[in-house]
């Protein structure tokens, strides 16, 4: 239906400068992505607030739902730095968020969603020099929701952010630091699936398998948040 108006569910032109994935492959991944990058969050916004808004795009009756939320953290201080990833179970839910939530307010800020290639280990941390998002280091204005005056003055706000700071003080990195969120239903008592030792055919679930992604990301060292 894109003849008269353009659909809002198209990915932006953002290109992750540090990804090693080929362009063709990136298109392919985005065309079935279940992950969204969410930007322009307040540093104080909680995962539960994010959950509340994004669950409105979920389709649990279709096997969907919010799989997990990965809060973007300042590399040094381990405090939220204004972005996160929301991962659904289905692609359609991610598209719905692009259409209905991107550009609306959460916690009184207009947030921005973008289809994402998928979370990889390490991407939960900001890649600005100060540890936060790069964009905050270029900011000249006073933005109370983002910790005040850009990165230079950020430290002065630390007291005010005590509570938020403590929330993720235990944030880990390395493999397994971020929860998976629960996978497909499996037969409980079956024990070993008959024939599972045999060579496995490809199935749709194989794409985007988290363990494989995590493996690859070692190469990319500091995978970054986005502008």
């Amino acid at each position: 239906m894109a003849n008269v108006v353009q659909s809002l569910d198209q990915p932006s032109n953002y290109k992750d400068s540090q990804t090693r994935i080929e362009r063709q492959k990136q298109h392919e991944l985005l065309s079935k992505s279940t992950t969204l990058y969410i930007g322009n969050l307040s540093f104080y916004t909680t995962e539960e607030q994010i959950y509340e808004l994004f669950t409105k795009c979920a389709s649990p009756e279709d096997g969907g739902g919010i799989k997990r939320i990965i809060m973007g953290l300042d590399r040094h201080t381990r405090t939220p730095c204004g972005f996160c990833f929301v991962e659904y179970y289905t692609h359609a839910e991610a598209l719905a968020s692009m259409k209905y939530v991107s550009g609306t307010k959460l916690d009184e800020r207009i947030i921005r969603c973008d289809l994402d290639l998928g979370y990889k280990e390490g991407r939960q941390f900001g890649r600005g020099k100060s540890g936060g998002q790069v964009r905050d280091e270029h900011r000249q204005d006073y933005d109370p929701g983002r910790g005040g005056w850009g990165a230079q003055a950020q430290r002065l706000e630390i007291e005010r952010r005590r509570e938020v700071e403590e929330r993720y003080a235990d944030a880990q990195d390395g493999p397994g630091a971020v929860a998976g969120g629960g996978g497909d239903w499996k037969e409980a008592d079956g024990g070993t699936i008959p024939g599972s030792a045999l060579k496995r055919g490809r199935s749709p679930e194989d794409e985007g398998d988290n363990s494989r992604m995590a493996h690859r990301s070692r190469l990319d060292d500091f995978e970054a948040e986005r502008m």
Binding site: T46, E47, E48, R68, I70, R167, Y168, A179, G182
Partner: peptide
């Protein structure tokens, strides 16, 4: 109880 992610981590 600190956040949704903490819940997932604890359960997992």
């Amino acid at each position: 109880s600190r956040s949704f992610s903490h819940l997932l981590n604890a359960i997992e």
